[in-house]
Design a protein around this nucleic acid. Structure first.
Lengths: 232, 232
DNA sequence: ACTACCACACTTGTATGGTAGTATGGAAGT
DNA sequence: ACTTCCATACTACCATACAAGTGTGGTAGT
C-alpha cells in the first residue's frame, strides 16, 4: 500500500447529481450560502441548468448530513449552526484520533512514517510561502496518513463528515501565521512520539491539538448570532 | 429533561420514501435481503405500490449509509459485508462509549442514573421471561441513556448508524441466555462504577462489554462466504 | 379599523416518459 | 466448435407533469 502525502481529491462522479451536490456543499461550508438561507429546488435547478430531480437528490443527501433542513411543502433551508452538534463533532474526533495515534505508537508502517516526515517538510515550505490553502490541505493529509497507516480508512471518512460541521464554525479556516507555527510543532511532536512509541505523549499532544480553536465558535456566534440555533 | 427507559421508536415520517426506506433497511439488516442481492427500482416500486421516485430516493439513502451499492446503468445491489468496515465500526463505538462512560463518572444527572437502575430492573424481568427482543431493546436503551445523560445525543445517533453494519454481522442478534447473564452483569457493574465515580473501572468494563461477539463475524463468514467482500 | 376568508403563488412529494449505457443470448460467419 | 456481432431487454439517470400542503396578501363583510 502507498501513502499519498498530497492533499486528497475524492473521485466525484461526473453525474449531474454529484456536481450539484459538491457545489452546494462548498457554498454552504464557505458560508457563501449562510445558515438560514432558503433554497429552492426550482431555483437551484435553473441556476445549475438541470432539472429538479438531481437538485432534489442533492438536497436529500445534504439533509442527511445535517447541512440543510427540508420542511415538506414549506421549503429547504441551510441548517443553522448547532453549537451542541459542533461540540459533539469535536468530541468524537478527539476520541477517535486519540485512539488512532495510540495505535500508531504500537504499530505503524515505515512507509507511512516516511509519508508523515515528507508531509512535515512540505508544511515547512508552505509556511514560508504563507500558502494557507496548501497548509490546510497538508494538515488534513497528515491526519489522513495517520488513519490509513493504522488501517482505519473508514474511520477517517466518518471524521471527514463531521468536519463539515466543524469547519463551518471555524471562521473560514483563516488561521494566523502564529497559529500555524503552533500546529506544525504539534504535528512534529506527534510524529516523534510515534517513532519513539511514546503513546502517552502522542495522545496528550493529539488531544491538545484538537482542542484548539474552540473559541472560534464563540467569536462567530457573537458576530453572527442569526447563524446559530436557539438564540441564547 | 426526562429519560425514557423504554426502547426508542424514531418518528419515521409517514412519507412514501421513509416507509420504503425503513422497510428495505429492515430487510437488509435481517438478511432477508442477503448481501449481493439485486434490487430494482421498478420491482420495488411494484412491490410497495408506489412510483419509482420514492424507491429511488430510498436507494440513494441506503447507498449513502453503505447498505447498498448503486452501479449506474447496471443495477443496485445489497452491499457485501465488509469485514474491515465492521471492525472499524466496532472500534469507533468502543472509543466513543469508553469516553462517554468516563464522562458519566464525572458528571451524571441523578434522573439518568435512576433511569439506568429502572432499566436494569426491566432487564431482569425480561430475562426471566426470556423475551430476547425486549432485552435487545433494553440493552440499546441502556446505552442511549448513558449518552443522553452526558449530553451526547448526536454522538449516539452516529453510533446507531454504525450499528447497522455491526448488527448485520451478528447472526441476527440471537444471543444465548447465558450471554445475556454476562451482559447484564456488565451493565450492572457500569452503573455501579458511575455511582461510585470509578472512571477506570467503568471504562474497562465498557471496553470489555463492546468487545464481545467478535467471533460472530468469523462464524458467519465461514457459513456464508458469499456474503463477504473480497473472497479470501 | 378590524376580522374572516379565500384565491394564488409558492413549496416539496409523487408519478411517469424518455435517454443512454450495460449485460446477455442468439444468430451469423469463420 | 468457436468467435464476432448485434438485437433486445434490462438498468439507473434525468426531465417533466401533476398532486397536495403552506404562507401571504388582498378583499369583502362587519
Amino acid at each position: 500500500m502507498t501513502f499519498n502525502v498530497r492533499p486528497h481529491r475524492q473521485p466525484s462522479g461526473g453525474s449531474a447529481r454529484d456536481l450539484v451536490y459538491a457545489r452546494l456543499r462548498e457554498q454552504i461550508l464557505s458560508l457563501e450560502l449562510p445558515p438560514g438561507a432558503a433554497l429552492s429546488e426550482q431555483e437551484s435547478a435553473l441556476a445549475f441548468q438541470v432539472s429538479r430531480t438531481p437538485v432534489r437528490e442533492s438536497f436529500l443527501r445534504l439533509a442527511q448530513e445535517g447541512l440543510v433542513q427540508v420542511l415538506p411543502q414549506r421549503g429547504t433551508f441551510v441548517s443553522l449552526i448547532d453549537a451542541e452538534l459542533v461540540e459533539e463533532a469535536r468530541f468524537m474526533r478527539e476520541q477517535l484520533e486519540a485512539a488512532v495515534v495510540r495505535l500508531a505508537c504500537e504499530k505503524f508502517p515505515p512507509e507511512a512514517l516516511k509519508a508523515l516526515d515528507d508531509n512535515l517538510l512540505e508544511q515547512k515550505t508552505s509556511m514560508k510561502r504563507e500558502d494557507e490553502r496548501e497548509l490546510f490541505g497538508l494538515d488534513e493529509a497528515f491526519h489522513r496518513v495517520l488513519f490509513e497507516g493504522c488501517g482505519k480508512r473508514n474511520t477517517w471518512q466518518v471524521i471527514q463528515q463531521m468536519n463539515a460541521h466543524l469547519n463551518r464554525s471555524r471562521l473560514l479556516r483563516l488561521v494566523t501565521a502564529h497559529e500555524w507555527d503552533h500546529l506544525y510543532e504539534q504535528h512534529e511532536r506527534m510524529a516523534r512520539a510515534i517513532r519513539e512509541r511514546d503513546a502517552d505523549e502522542a495522545e496528550r499532544t493529539m488531544r491538545e491539538h484538537l482542542r484548539r480553536g474552540i473559541s472560534d465558535m464563540e467569536q462567530l456566534r457573537q458576530s453572527y448570532p442569526q447563524y446559530f440555533k436557539q438564540g441564547e
